[in-house]
Simulated assay, not measured.
Amino acid sequence: MTILAVGFSLLAAALHVYIWVLESFRWTEPATRKTFRTSEADAAATREMAYNQGFYNLFLAVITLIGLALLGTDHEVGTALALAGTGSMLSAALVLITRDRSMARAAITQGTFPLLAVVSLLLQL
């Protein structure tokens, strides 16, 4: 089960690094605006907020990656950190869908790998 936990956690972290790039550095680009369904004016107005939000996503990925790195030497601490990162990612996806049902596709995209990671991490305890 650890292989699945590591694999799903890595995928979740990679996705959140990608989201960091989109939100922090490409927020006003046409392709990013299309992905996040925002207008040019709204993207310009929310650029600073998106920059900050992107770093939240990066930090969740970093916490997860540090946890994975520690799995071999300190299994309990590594698992706790990986669960903190992926659990927070999953929670953010749940907040997204409960706030706006039209964001179901985005929430599923954002939350599937973290959900699978959380389940796998819990099963390998």
Rank of each mutant, 00 (worst) to 15 (best):
A82Y: 09
G87H: 00
T38M: 12
Y56E: 00
Q110C: 01
V21Y: 14
A92F: 01
V17M: 10
I66G: 06
I63A: 15
L11T: 06
A92P: 05
A84P: 00
Q110K: 01
G87A: 00
L60S: 12
F113A: 15
L60K: 05
A12L: 02
E29W: 04
T112G: 02
P30H: 03
L11R: 05
K34D: 14
L70I: 02
A93I: 04
D42L: 10
Y18W: 07
A80Q: 13
R26A: 13
G111M: 01
F55W: 14
L10R: 12
E40F: 04
V119S: 11
F59Q: 06
S39A: 07
A13P: 06
L115N: 13
G85M: 03
L90C: 01
L68D: 15
A106C: 00
L90E: 01
F59I: 09
I66S: 04
W27T: 04
A43S: 14
R99M: 03
A14C: 12
A117Y: 06
T2F: 03
T73F: 10
G54C: 11
T73I: 12
Y18E: 14
A12N: 02
Y18Q: 11
P114R: 05
A50L: 11
A82H: 06
M1G: 14
W27Y: 05
L22F: 09
E76I: 02
R101A: 05
L125Q: 13
P114F: 03
